[in-house]
């Protein structure tokens, strides 16, 4: 069966750790990291990367446009 899988790339240094991407994800993929970036923000990351469907809801919500989304179909 074909499976659609997605992944995101977070521009860690631009992320302000606001967290609005976390509840916007329908697959509960995202969380805020325990690590911080150069500005001291807990940046967003994929805590559960296998569940990502590449819907781009997180990227649409991100006020600082730090998320890039990719999606691929596996036959």
């Amino acid at each position: 069966m074909a499976k659609i899988k997605g992944t995101i790339i977070v521009d860690i240094e631009r992320c302000k750790g606001c967290g609005v991407c976390v509840p916007s994800c329908p697959a509960n993929v995202l969380a805020l990291s325990h690590h911080v970036n150069g500005k001291g923000y807990n940046y967003s990351y994929m805590a559960n990367p296998d569940a990502c469907i590449g819907c781009a809801s997180c990227a649409i919500m991100c006020p600082d446009s730090v998320i890039t989304v990719y999606r691929q179909k596996f036959e």
Binding site: G54, A56, I67, Y70
Partner: peptide, 16 residues
């Protein structure tokens, strides 16, 4: 299916 990796390339791009 966990080993499936999405390739980071232009044709797979959804949002930037």
């Amino acid at each position: 299916m966990a080993e499936l990796e999405v390739q980071i390339k232009e044709e797979n791009l959804v949002y930037r």
